[in-house]
């Protein structure tokens, strides 16, 4: 994915996250470490799963939007791994990032079952199919 190969340029652009090893969540204000327990780089808050728009995925390279990105959906890869789809609240850019082991499971599960709470058609007919 483009998010993984753009990570070095992103980390060089924001030296405070590399030097301190922490960043402050734009939504809940939690101070979290930038590295996960797996050793990979974290790109969203594990508590509220919000992110920040620092990468431009259409043009490539770093973005100067810096808007808050709220999680809107959960996608499943062919391997079975879950990805979180983020949407920037300022410029409506969409990104996908893999979930971490210590992410808030309640928020992920709530996003996964959220469409089924208000289906656009009655689901009773699917029992007969």
């Amino acid at each position: 994915m483009s998010s993984t190969d753009k990570t070095p340029s992103h980390t060089s652009r924001t030296p405070n996250t590399v030097l301190a090893g922490t960043f402050t969540c734009a939504w809940c204000g939690l101070t979290v470490s930038a590295a996960t327990v797996d050793g990979t780089r974290r790109n969203h808050c594990p508590s509220c799963v919000h992110s920040q728009h620092v990468l431009d995925h259409v043009e490539g390279g770093p973005s100067d939007c810096r808007g808050r990105m709220s999680p809107i959906s959960v996608a499943v890869l062919r391997t079975g791994d879950w990805m979180v789809i983020h949407r920037c609240v300022r410029c409506d850019e969409l990104t996908s990032s893999p979930i971490c082991a210590d992410d808030n499971q309640l928020i992920l599960m709530r996003m996964a079952v959220r469409p089924l709470a208000q289906p656009p058609f009655p689901l009773e007919a699917f029992g007969d199919l």
């Binding site: 499943v76 469409p115 656009p120």
Partner: peptide, 12 residues
């Protein structure tokens, strides 16, 4: 890729 729901419940 996946299904999302707006705050008003509309599917995207």
């Amino acid at each position: 890729l996946s299904m999302s729901a707006r705050p008003d419940g509309e599917w995207m």
